[in-house]
Design a protein around this nucleic acid. Structure first.
Lengths: 182, 182
DNA sequence: CATCGCATGTAATAGGTTACATGATTAT
DNA sequence: ATAATCATGTAACCTATTACATGCGATG
């Protein structure tokens, strides 16, 4: 179960409420690594509290509860992170779509791949611009914040996916010339 | 729901039994795009059959049933693939781990990142060798099979992840010099 | 005093995993 | 005979999504 470790990891950086954590998942974290919404997060925080892995360290207006990770929680997080690299769950819908394309009509596949490559390129440019902006406001030798690491992976992942789509497009076209009858 | 479309896509290439499909998910498809086991696949095939998206086209020993996609199923698959690029579910545990590293002790993070980069490199080399071998047995201008596309994405994904890990390692080290007290 | 954002939750349903279970055929 | 592989399934449990629901506090 990765959600609880994601929560422990976020709280290990600094105490936060379920609401704060929900916002983090709505950003780059949720976009490139792991999705979650408040309906999962609140019950999971309650469970972690029961198990003594997190604790309430402050209360605020509107019933706000600020959680922090406990020593036990920190130990659990560390042991999870340093466990041997069991290859975890991978479910990537965009990639699945690309796989399945090969089972379709050539013209449809070509159109889709070209569109996908273009869309990647566009998202890439937007993301890169937004990261560059953030970098400008930060001293060059400061340690990178959490979100910046996420964004960097996003950039590289888009580039990779785009290039793969272009490559796949070539393969489809090559199939078209070698099998002119189908 | 992506599983049903994965099944339709596989069957659109050629008719197969639940058992055959299970084996496909155990390979590169399940490794880079979408995981599934027989306990999900058999019930889903039954549902697709009820809905008229697939049909039984043959029986074999031990109760083996070979399914094929129907015209309705093919239409559903096509419409799913060509639907506007709603950014789908992303849950990638290895990437999540890397994100959370920044919340840990510097020495642990450094060790993990170096290990992860090395492991990526190793998997990459194995995969690349296996793909090269397959390529040798195939005519140069033949259309690439399904699994080959998957493998290619795997190679590129490993390269990207490895390079990102090395970059992240540099960031961690940079943090160490700029904040010698922590 | 209306509206927006903060902040929390529950319930129903859908999707996915693990454990359990059975039996036929083929290879040794 | 025995074991391995083929081939199917069910049940219990866990994880995730969608829809519904409530109320406080700040801003205009």
């Amino acid at each position: 179960m990765s959600l609880r470790h994601a929560l422990l990891g976020l709280l290990a950086r600094k105490p936060a409420s379920g609401y704060d954590l929900t916002k983090e998942f709505a950003g780059d974290l949720g976009r490139y690594a792991w999705q979650a919404t408040h309906t999962q997060i609140y019950p999971e925080l309650a469970k972690l509290d029961d198990e003594g892995l997190v604790e309430v360290v402050g209360q605020g207006p509107r019933g706000r509860r600020t959680y922090a990770v406990t020593e036990a929680g920190r130990a659990e997080l560390r042991s999870w992170l340093l466990r041997p690299p069991d290859r975890g769950t991978v479910r990537n819908e965009p990639v699945l779509r690309m796989f399945l394309l090969s089972s379709l009509d050539r013209d449809d596949a070509r159109e889709y791949l070209a569109g996908a490559a273009k869309a990647c390129q566009q998202e890439l440019e937007e993301l890169r611009a937004s990261l560059d902006e953030g970098d400008r406001d930060r001293p060059t030798d400061a340690p990178l914040p959490f979100g910046r690491m996420a964004g960097e992976f996003g950039v590289r992942f888009y580039e990779t996916t785009r290039d793969w789509a272009l490559w796949a497009l070539e393969q489809v076209d090559r199939g078209a010339t070698s099998q002119p009858s189908g």
